[in-house]
Design a binder for these strands. Structure first.
Lengths: 232, 232
DNA sequence: AATCGAAGTTAAATTTGACTGATTATTTAC
DNA sequence: GTAAATAATCAGTCAAATTTAACTTCGATT
């Protein structure tokens, strides 16, 4: 079955919101995510509900049905595979691909996406570190937390960053943070919540990053480091 | 300036029709090309005219302005570059790419298309032999004629075939005709206009092709052959 | 020059997705 | 437990692109 770009965008927005926040998503949250008005969202939710893509209770909120989730994951799969293509093959920078991928994700051709997947050699993550759902909609989830919530002294590895803010991505380029970078948290400034971190590269650099930045970087506790600690 | 997919499709249709037939295109011809109704065409022509994309005189017909032509050529450039990508990189067959390219041609990103052009190594022709307009809209035009109009005995080379009919392309695959194939016209059957041709490959094969087929294959008089004749 | 049929146009209605303004539910604060 | 604040919905419009049905215009023929 085929859906309009508008419908697909709503399903994707609901999916993203129910990932980051709670399972059940509010009308206003969707309106903000899509830069539209709550009244428009109400209209569309009625429509999606009649197509059994969402569970919608008036005034209470909305969640994806199995069917809705599988459509959303399919859009996400397409978006992220195209991002890999744009960066790896066409040599775009990672801060330039989101907008174009927003258009490409609505191209309808199952066959093309499977061929693209082969061509890209079955990537598991997009250029921002977000996992790519497989054909069946399975998605690798590793335990992560925002950099802003890591405790002092901990060593972590950058897993992913928000792909929708080009300014953030350009900033990270400039200070030398990329997917896979190892960071150590040195100090948390009480005044504004800034973090002092060491960025391990060819040489270790110390930086101060704002909460705005650290909230948008997802990290894992570094396993190698963990083992080393255990060994002691 | 940005145009809707509908506007772009109309401009492309007018462009194609004014190439194959005359400069000035009729409402009904456009309606047929786009599988829509003449009334819809009238409405759109008024709109395109107010945007200075076409010269439109009620009841008389329509032609592209310079501006309209350059938009049309840009869409054609995108369509044909994507077709090259789909065949060369993703390994689609030449009969499968038209539909998908019809969607991809509406993606908006000048930058992406120029990067795609680089990535594909500046192809001059798409998989069906149609020339790809360059950045400025210049397009290579070689003197061609439909196979159906070639005289008996002549040796010709296949330059291009219609990309919009998958059945034709599959048929050509089956009988071993591809872009660049050399054909010799043996006989024209008076009854239905069928042609008997020799297809030169690893071995030469004789075939009978219907007018439907021969009208959709564009060929050039073979140059090597011409020289050989001159030499005599 | 009157007319007939084909080609083309207008008018009115439909569909999709959005917006504005008014109204109704739900929560929160006291 | 009620009033104010917040959230969500409803009703009415709008714009784009289409369709159907009814009406013009053109031009070829008589």
């Amino acid at each position: 079955m085929d859906f309009s770009s508008a419908e697909e965008n709503y399903l994707k927005a609901i999916y993203h919101l129910s990932e980051t926040d709670s399972e059940i998503v509010s009308t206003n949250a969707i309106a903000e995510e899509l830069n539209t008005k709550p009244a428009s969202v109400s209209d569309m939710l009625k429509k999606l509900s009649s197509k059994n893509l969402v569970n919608y209770i008036r005034y209470k909120g909305v969640s994806l049905t199995e069917k809705g989730k599988s459509v959303a994951l399919w859009i996400v799969r397409k978006h992220r595979l195209w991002e890999v293509f744009l960066v790896e093959k066409l040599k775009f920078n990672w801060d330039e691909v989101h907008e174009v991928a927003e258009q490409l994700e609505h191209i309808k051709s199952r066959r093309m996406i499977e061929k693209l997947d082969v061509y890209l050699n079955f990537p598991k993550f997009d250029p921002h570190g977000d996992p790519i759902p497989d054909k069946e909609g399975n998605i690798a989830i590793l335990p992560t937390l925002p950099l802003s919530e890591v405790s002092i002294g901990e060593v972590v590895k950058v897993v992913s960053v928000s792909d929708s803010d080009a300014n953030l991505l350009q900033y990270l380029d400039k200070v030398g943070i990329s997917i896979g970078s190892e960071l150590q948290i040195v100090e948390r400034i009480a005044f504004d919540g800034s973090l002092e971190i060491n960025i391990k590269g060819s040489e270790t650099v110390s930086r101060l990053v704002s909460p705005q930045v650290s909230q948008n970087i997802l990290v894992t506790i570094d396993n190698k480091q963990k083992k080393a600690l255990k060994g002691k």
